[in-house]
């Protein structure tokens, strides 16, 4: 193949490795993991607020790791990676979100209330 004659190390996907960015993503990820953990352990806020913090941290880490580690940008080499990744986000959200919604209504409608709030099966 024609590419085999060239030096594979000159390929843009090899050349885009960047130590500084990798380390930056690493540090940010650790901070974003530790911060919500700290908040959760403290229990200073309501659980719903904390849930939002956790979701926000996960989203932020997705963006940081996606950009600095996987280099999901719109450059010519990476455009298809980014496009397919973005295509899959709604699919994942639909799978999890619609399932959760469906079962939330199903649980409220098909579980017998007295059994649902009992403190477990004691007998």
């Amino acid at each position: 193949m024609s590419t085999e004659c060239q030096d594979p190390l000159q390929h843009p996907q090899v050349q885009m490795a960047h130590g500084g960015q990798y380390i930056a993503a690493y540090v940010f990820s650790l901070i974003l993991s530790a911060l919500p953990l700290f908040l959760v352990q403290e229990h200073g806020y309501s659980d719903t607020h904390l849930l939002f913090v956790v979701i926000a941290a996960a989203a932020a880490m997705t963006i940081i790791q996606g950009y600095f580690w996987l280099r999901l940008d719109v450059s010519r080499t990476q455009a298809w990676f980014t496009a397919s990744f973005i295509l899959f986000i709604p699919l994942v959200v639909l799978t999890i979100g619609l399932t959760a919604w469906m079962f939330a209504t199903l649980y409220t409608r098909t579980m017998i209330p007295t059994l649902m709030h009992a403190p477990g099966f004691t007998h």
Binding site: T105, L106, R109
Partner: peptide, 18 residues
Amino acid sequence: SWSVWLHHFFTMGAGPGV
């Protein structure tokens, strides 16, 4: 195609909104 699958079990008893 990704948001239609429940129509295979409409009779499951999920809420009318679903």
